[in-house]
Design a binder for these strands. Structure first.
Length: 273
DNA sequence: CCTTGAACCTGCGGGC
DNA sequence: TGCCCGCAGGTTCAAG
């Protein structure tokens, strides 16, 4: 499930095969994913050199030498595989990029919630996908005072607030559950009832959880590319996520699951108040 | 304005 | 064995 750390790992894994390379050919195998691919999408990439790879929230940004930037999003089921040789496309291989040294980068996405777009690099922050996004959780402008101030303005519970990309960009269900556990805050807590001190603890917990996951991603991949060539999926040792009924790793209390705005929240009824 | 919930889509696992 | 159902995930958009 690609969340921020997985996307970060994918980006790092794409640097070696793509940076400085020229895109020789792009094969587009369907009309679009979450929305149609741009008109003549392959033609806009072919012959272009890749200047660099970046991440914003859960988006992968590939800067080209003509001032354009390719935007990729993995949705909920997307993955990217790098291989040395062209292979027979598999089901759900939607985009296949071939570089000038013969490397093949394949974007596969069974559920098709992902997307691909291209826009002028200078306009990225005004792009409709980016204009509303809050700060990056790992940057300095996402900090305790900021989080506390934002929470004071909200009436929802803390879980929904952290999932809102306008407040902070890139957190998903898994890392929100994990961060709330680490901060000892119950997912149903109203934003207004989160103290200054707790907000501080929570901001730190978010950064810690993400950094740890990114480190795990990096260390579990050889040059950020697994033997299979698949980028961005790695084993995590979750504290609470997907562990309903299992003992809390801190206090042994069976972990609980509730549904909040249609999504599962996992938490420890004893450690999180 | 704010918040909630449905929709998009496929694969998988549980229950019968 | 096989079918059906529910569920998972991120984001946007409509409805409350």
């Amino acid at each position: 499930m690609p969340e921020l750390p997985e996307v970060e790992t994918v980006c790092r894994g794409l640097v070696k095969p793509l940076k400085g390379r020229t895109i020789r050919r792009v094969q587009q195998r369907r009309a679009g994913l979450r929305f149609p691919f741009p008109a003549n999408f392959p033609k806009k990439l072919e012959g272009r050199r890749v200047r660099g790879i970046r991440r914003r929230a859960k988006y992968i940004l590939i800067d080209l030498d003509d001032g354009q930037t390719v935007i990729l999003h993995l949705g909920m089921s997307g993955s990217i595989v790098v291989s040395a040789k062209k292979q027979k496309p598999e089901k759900h291989d939607h985009l296949i990029f071939e570089t000038d040294n013969g490397k093949i980068v394949t974007f596969n996405d069974p559920r098709r919630f992902g997307l691909a777009d291209i826009t002028a690099r200078a306009d990225i922050e005004n792009h409709r996908l980016f204009s509303h996004l809050g700060p990056e959780p790992l940057e300095k402008d996402f900090n305790a005072p900021f989080l506390f101030t934002q929470l004071q303005k909200r009436k929802s519970d803390i879980k929904a607030a952290l999932m809102d990309q306008k407040l902070v960009a890139g957190l998903g269900n898994i890392y929100v559950c994990e961060a709330l556990f680490l901060a000892g805050i119950h997912p149903r807590r109203r934003c207004g009832r989160v103290s200054r001190e707790e907000a501080s603890k929570l901001a730190a917990a978010i950064k810690k959880v993400l950094k740890k996951a990114i480190a795990a991603g990096g260390s579990s991949l050889r040059d950020y590319v697994q033997a299979t060539g698949e980028l961005g999926y790695f084993q995590h040792k979750w504290q609470v996520y997907d562990r309903e009924g299992l003992p809390c790793r801190k206090c042994k209390t069976p972990l609980a699951r509730i549904t909040q705005s249609g999504r599962s929240s996992f938490y420890c009824p004893s450690c999180q108040k």
